[in-house]
């Protein structure tokens, strides 16, 4: 168990070194694949342990939230921003729940957070499988790809919004908020969305900077 984080870290480093735009040979990614499988298992176990609810209910509730924002704001771009902000608020608090319940190994590097989010967090909360792709050569950017999205289960974008609204943008906010709590300030944005007719959902996460942990100056302890 204690070996796992180190292994994973090494795996992600080899991944980082060897990943360019070209697909990596299978042999070098064997370690990463094994690691990913282990993380998927952790995610699945956390999902099973948790209390589950009907995904339709979550989809409808999320739909109600998006609907309200669409009615309130004139421009879909503003709706995206609001969804991101709401997600950020959720992410700040969700990370505690995640660390407490997931039993996932700690993120020792930014690149390592990718597999944890994709394999464990997506599985644990949304019950879907996601994977990491398009890792930048310096490890400061990666994409999370997932096919099914329970939040968008019944959604259909009206034609005028197809080019502007990112329906599930709340997920980007959640990732941003959660990573900020583990000292990574990031940007997260949707690149592709099945609702818009793309072949899969893609969220691009890029590191802005690593935050330093400081004792607050007005600490009275």
């Amino acid at each position: 168990m204690s070996e796992a984080p180190r292994e994973r870290l090494q795996a992600s480093q080899t991944e980082r070194n060897s990943s360019e735009k070209v697909p990596r040979p299978v042999a070098t990614s064997a370690g990463a694949a094994a690691n990913a499988a282990a993380l998927s298992k952790i995610g699945e176990q956390a999902f099973q342990r948790g209390e589950l609810v009907n995904s339709e209910l979550a989809a409808l509730t999320y739909g109600a939230l998006v609907r309200q924002l669409v009615l309130d704001y004139a421009h879909p771009q503003q709706v995206n921003e609001q969804l991101d902000r709401i997600g950020y608020n959720i992410g700040l608090r969700l990370v505690d729940d995640f660390l407490a319940r997931s039993a996932a190994p700690p993120c020792r590097s930014f690149a390592a957070s990718a597999e944890i989010i994709a394999r464990v967090a997506f599985r644990m909360y949304l019950g879907v499988n996601a994977k990491v792709a398009h890792i930048a050569s310096d490890g400061s950017e990666y994409s999370i790809l997932f096919d099914s999205n329970p939040l968008a289960e019944f959604a259909e974008l009206p034609e005028p919004m197809k080019g502007s609204l990112w329906y599930s943008n709340v997920i980007c906010g959640v990732i941003r908020g959660a990573l900020e709590m583990v000292q990574y300030s990031v940007q997260a944005r949707f690149e592709r969305d099945i609702l818009r007719g793309d072949d899969c959902n893609e969220i691009r996460v890029s590191l802005v900077r690593e935050l330093e942990e400081r004792v607050p100056t007005d600490n009275e302890i």
């Binding site: 999902f47 948790g50 009907n54 979550a58 939230l65 924002l69 608090r93 909360y125 329970p150």
Partner: peptide
């Protein structure tokens, strides 16, 4: 749950945000 399930935390947070919003 018939087709899919999500973690209840997701719903809890969505509801909280809906009220807060």
């Amino acid at each position: 749950p018939t087709r899919g399930a999500v973690d209840s935390t997701v719903l809890d947070f969505l509801l909280m945000e809906l009220v807060a919003e």
